[in-house]
Design a binder for these strands. Structure first.
Length: 589
RNA sequence: CGGGGCGUAGCUCAGCCCGGUAGAGCGCUUGGUUUGGGACCAAGAAGUCGCAGGUUCGAAUCCUGUCGCCCCGACCA
């Protein structure tokens, strides 16, 4: 390297000196912007703590800068992901975030993503929200033969989605980091195998990242394909509602969840239907109370319009109609009838509608719980009247019985009967069997052993890296701060020099620091001379390293060092000479 | 995109209703004292009151517009 002047050389030397002397593991020298006060904009625990601990800061709505401490955690999580992806034969790529819009037109996903995809104004480019198109374009230009399959290709890269409403910190951002993987197979059996490999890799990843997770069957939505599962973490901050069985592990989005709620029991009394006066009685609870009929013997009637045709739907008691389930039966355009339509179609208002004496031509469907029900109370299609002793076998021409109801908390699991819990969940991963949706539309084909051209059979597998971090904090924190689990903690230990005025304390802390570094243990060293002990303890709890090593004057007089387990809160004193062994023991378990 | 709220010092916020010199706490700088759970004293630096227009002798304050951010809802591979 040439320098034009001695001054240039000197500043270069200064630069070298600088980078070799700043020790970023020392809080006194590194960048650790912690804050005591709770940021006003943060609502959920992980968001608050990520801001307070200085892991990241917002740059715009749904856009975050990761600061060194936060990035260390990201790297830990990404390394775990890499190891598990590599273990199933994945090969890491780094694909561009910018991609030509023509690529997305080939699969018609410009339209499918709509406003969710960012478009570049002065070039025909988009910011990729995911990478199926790019991967498929690579596959079609290189993969020619079944002999080259299967492949698992992945990357860890920034994704862009123009979320209408970013929220909850990094849980829903406009820019985020995703590990996305794609499997290429020559057969459907091959896809099943690749998919199974990913499912196991994902289980390993979340387990190693210290997350308590569960898996739910999911719809593949706009991704297309033949099957998919979501990996979810239970959290009140979640956006999805899931029915979860602690007995057998059954888990399903409430949109599709079933339960073992008991069906109607026939009385077989054979009573004839009878019209009774129910003045002003509308709701099922009122009907039940007024006629002294058990809720299980009341049928609720709802009118929907689908495809321009009215449908009447019966549910038992206070069961709620599940919109997703009814749309699966009647079609996606199914909607509740307007009040005027109700009156015109049935002759009565909501609350007095029923199966007997319907004027119009209805599609008649009912929830499975009502199959063979008799002795039921229903609306009379005449305001202020109900009909009793309705027998769904005898009196109602039900076209089909479907599971149409919303599962309630505490109902028996459909698989094992244990009480279901309805919980909120955060999606941390999603795996899809894509099939040939992308390879067919983009003509990514291979020649099979018979020389025949076939579209590659694909899978796609995503993990939100920031979501892993946020979920980890959601699951591991207390009122004082984060409790990192060892696997993704930014540092292994947090060394606190309690009192910089004590020569012994300084010496012992410094020698411990050097010894820890020599052992390749990542140590965050609070060596600040101007900060009070209380301040340091609060910071340590906030930052949340798994083990705090506290070197203080009083204990050192007795030749003792204090170790505090951040997770359990347990503190113990160990002889100074045993400290290193105790620390290594802690980290090893 | 609907509903609600907020933009004043680095952070948390008061001041606005009722127009008249720009405020507090925390943080920061300097000096001193302190040192086991977010210390104390003293001195100090720091703000185009989001932006643009309007009303007014005079606008952080009233009016109009606009931008940004947060929350609820819709949406969400």
């Amino acid at each position: 390297m040439q320098f034009e002047s001695a001054r240039g050389y000197n500043s270069f030397r200064l630069f070298l000196l600088h980078i070799t002397t700043v020790e970023c593991m020392r809080i006194s020298q590194g960048f650790f912007p912690t804050v005591k006060e709770v940021p006003a904009d943060a609502v959920i625990a992980s968001h608050r703590l990520m801001l307070r601990a200085g892991l990241m800061r917002p740059l715009g709505a749904g856009i975050y800068s990761f600061y060194p401490l936060g990035f260390r955690v990201m790297k830990k999580a990404m390394e775990i992901i890499r190891e598990e992806m590599d273990a199933i034969g994945g090969q890491e790529f780094l694909l561009p975030a910018l991609s030509p819009i023509e690529l997305w037109e080939e699969t018609d996903r410009v339209k499918a993503f709509g406003d969710t995809m960012f478009h570049i104004k002065n070039r025909p480019l988009v910011l990729a929200p995911t990478h199926e198109e790019v991967i498929t374009s690579i596959a079609r230009s290189h993969v020619k033969s079944y002999k080259e399959l299967p492949q698992i290709w992945y990357q860890i890269q920034t994704k862009f989605r123009n979320e209408p409403r970013p929220k909850s910190g990094v849980l829903r951002g406009r820019q985020f980091t995703m590990k996305d993987a794609y499997s290429l197979d020559a057969s459907w059996e091959g896809l099943d195998a690749s998919y199974a490999l990913h499912e196991q890799a994902y289980r390993n990843i979340y387990t190693r990242c210290g997350l308590n997770f569960f898996i739910v069957g999911a719809s593949s939505g706009a991704m297309g394909g033949t099957g998919s599962q979501e990996f979810m973490v239970e959290s009140d901050a979640g956006e999805d509602t899931v029915a979860l069985c602690d007995g057998c592990g059954y888990a399903a989005n409430v949109e599709i969840a079933a339960s073992g709620a008991p069906a109607a029991v026939r009385s077989d009394r054979g009573s004839s239907i009878e019209e009774v006066s129910t003045p002003g009685i509308k709701t099922i609870d009122e009907v039940s109370a007024y006629l002294k009929a058990d809720l299980a013997h009341c049928a609720k009637s709802l009118v929907y319009i689908a495809n321009g045709k009215p449908a009447i739907i019966f549910l038992m008691g206070n069961d709620q109609l599940n919109e997703t389930k009814i749309q699966a039966v009647l079609g996606a355009d199914a909607r509740p009838a307007h009040p005027e339509e109700l009156a015109a179609l049935t002759g009565a208002d909501a609350g007095s509608i029923g199966p007997i004496g319907l004027k119009a031509d209805f599609t008649i469907i009912a929830d499975k719980r009502l199959e063979h029900a008799d002795d039921m109370v229903c609306g009379a299609n005449k305001n202020d009247f109900h009909i009793t002793h309705v027998d769904f076998d005898r009196d109602v021409k039900v076209e089909a019985f479907h599971d149409l109801r919303v599962v309630e908390d505490g109902e028996p699991c459909p698989k094992c009967g244990t009480a279901l819990r309805i919980v909120k969940g955060i999606e941390v991963g999603h795996i899809f069997k894509l099939g040939t949706k992308y390879s067919a539309s983009m003509k990514a084909t291979f020649l099979d052993e018979h020389g025949k051209d076939n579209p590659i059979i694909m899978g796609s597998y995503g993990i939100g890296v920031e979501r892993i971090i946020a979920c980890h904090i959601e699951q591991h924190h207390d009122e004082f701060g984060i409790k990192w689990q060892k696997s993704i903690a930014p540092f292994d230990v947090h060394l606190i020099l309690v009192n910089a005025n004590s020569e012994e304390v300084v010496q012992k802390s410094e020698s411990l620091y050097a010894a820890l570094r020599a052992k390749k243990i990542d140590v965050l060293f609070d060596d600040r001379a101007t900060v009070s002990p209380g301040f340091k303890f609060k910071d340590a709890d906030l930052l949340g390293m798994p083990l705090q090593i506290i070197v203080g004057e009083k204990n050192l007089k007795n030749n003792q060092i204090e170790l505090k387990d951040r997770n359990t809160g347990e503190r113990r004193l160990v002889p100074a000479e045993d400290a290193m062994a105790e620390i290594e023991k802690f980290l090893a378990t």
